[in-house]
């Protein structure tokens, strides 16, 4: 009887310990077929991974070579530019710094009151001279610089318009005057081509731009509003739409056209001194 008890105790102990052992390791319940399948699966994934790495390494090598070749070509193109202009990278950096500085100076000038601008008209002429000097530099034709210089030109023109608001906003026609002559007067616009601005602002009084009469009083608009743009020479809708203070996106030129159909009949033709409304 005691032997049977001993036998039962041993059996229970054996089963309990074997059950515990199986729970500690997942491999206990794994058959050889399962093991082989898992091993084959991981081996397959490892092989595919290694093969893919080799392919990607080859691609990376090719791309790096291509990039190096383009870097070399890029450097060579710059060297050609420097050789043609007889300059160096340092001089080009100085040129770009000069553009940035001029842009800041013009922006600061534009922020002044109309009276201050009018009183410091000589300063504006100096800014214009700095701009002209930068435009005459060979680097001035490069697209990025050209865009910056055009923007500065537009800001200077706006400053001129703002400064002129300090002088009387109207002009009384004298005998012998004509629109071209009035527009050219220093206190009016200082530019004969600005006759169109006088004409478009006084259409009720001027039936024919070639016929004006003494004692007629013409409105001389000076300022350009924050949502307006005064067209300067060399500008076109695509370029204006790209300015950061307009839409900052040249492709929005059509929006500019749609909102100014009263003054623009053909989107390919706009004139200096036209004032365009910038719908936001």
């Amino acid at each position: 009887m005691r032997s049977i008890k001993t036998l039962i105790t041993i059996s229970v102990f054996f089963f309990l310990t074997s059950a515990l052992y199986a729970q500690s390791y997942n491999y206990e319940e794994m058959t050889q077929e399962q093991y082989n399948a898992y091993l084959a699966e991981w081996q397959g994934r490892l092989d595919a991974g290694n093969s893919g790495i080799s392919e990607q390494d080859a691609t990376i090598d090719e791309l790096n070579k291509e990039l190096q070749s383009m870097d070399a070509e890029y450097g060579q193109t710059w060297n050609d530019i420097f050789a043609a202009t007889g300059t160096s990278q340092e001089e080009y950096n100085s040129y770009q710094d000069a553009i940035s500085q001029l842009k800041k100076d013009v922006a600061a000038f534009l922020a002044m009151s109309p009276d201050q601008i009018y009183q410091n008209a000589a300063e504006l002429d100096k800014l214009q001279a700095r701009l002209t000097e930068l435009q005459n530099n060979h680097f001035g034709v490069m697209s990025e610089n050209e865009a910056d210089l055009n923007e500065i030109a537009s800001m200077i023109e706006q400053a001129r318009g703002k400064g002129k608001s300090a002088v009387p906003p109207s002009y009384t026609v004298q005998r012998g005057d004509y629109l071209w002559k009035i527009a050219k007067m220093p206190d009016i616009y200082g530019d004969a081509y600005a006759w169109m601005r006088i004409y478009t602002s006084n259409k009720e009084q001027i039936k024919d731009p070639n016929l004006i009469y003494p004692n007629q009083s013409f409105l001389i608009p000076r300022e350009v509003g924050p949502n307006q743009h005064l067209v300067v020479r060399g500008e076109y809708l695509y370029k204006i739409a790209g300015y950061s203070n307009v839409y900052g996106n040249a492709f929005q030129w059509q929006k500019l056209f749609e909102n100014n159909k009263e003054v623009i009949t053909d989107p390919n033709i706009i004139f200096p001194y036209q004032v365009l409304n910038i719908a936001r």
Binding site: Y74, T77, I81, H138
Partner: peptide, 20 residues
């Protein structure tokens, strides 16, 4: 990006050469 930059620079180079 580099290709785009290079094309732009080549176009600028042509303009500079013409200006010179």
């Amino acid at each position: 990006a580099k290709k785009k930059d290079l094309e732009k620079l080549k176009s600028d180079k042509d303009k500079v050469m013409q200006s010179v």
